[in-house]
Amino acid sequence: MAPPKKVSTTASSSTSAITSALQDLVQSYKENTPKRVKIIDAFLLFIVLSGVAQFVYCALITNYPFNAFLAGFGSSIGQFVLTAAFRAQVNPATRSQFTIISPERAFADFCFGSIVLHFFVYNFLG
């Protein structure tokens, strides 16, 4: 895991430290993340938005039928964690922790897990 090139200077107050650290974070993210991992991150963002939308609808408007909410929300959460696991297995920064999983095998596992997840989601949905 390669440390970033730039080192932020310590600021006087903590808030400016946080803002500068956040800027560093965004900059470091843009530089150090491979393009394919960014596609994964975009997918993750979409799933998060969809899940949050369903949760807000459930909390504010109605939670009937509860099983449909659980199925839809569970679909978002499940897809999110599966994709996050896939990201960890493919990202060069963290790939070293997986000794016997190659990126191709990671993709195959990801597809298998997602299909099983979607099968259960549609069974529970209606």
Binding site: L70, G74, G78, A84, Q89, Q97, F120
Partner: peptide, 27 residues
């Protein structure tokens, strides 16, 4: 480690959704 993360998240997300399919367990 990310191995723990992958294994546990996959088990929990799919397993919990699957376990609710049994009517006796329900919600």
């Amino acid at each position: 480690s990310h191995r723990l993360y992958s294994a546990y998240s996959a088990w929990y997300a799919v397993g919990t959704l699957a376990s609710m399919q049994v009517p006796f367990v329900g919600f």
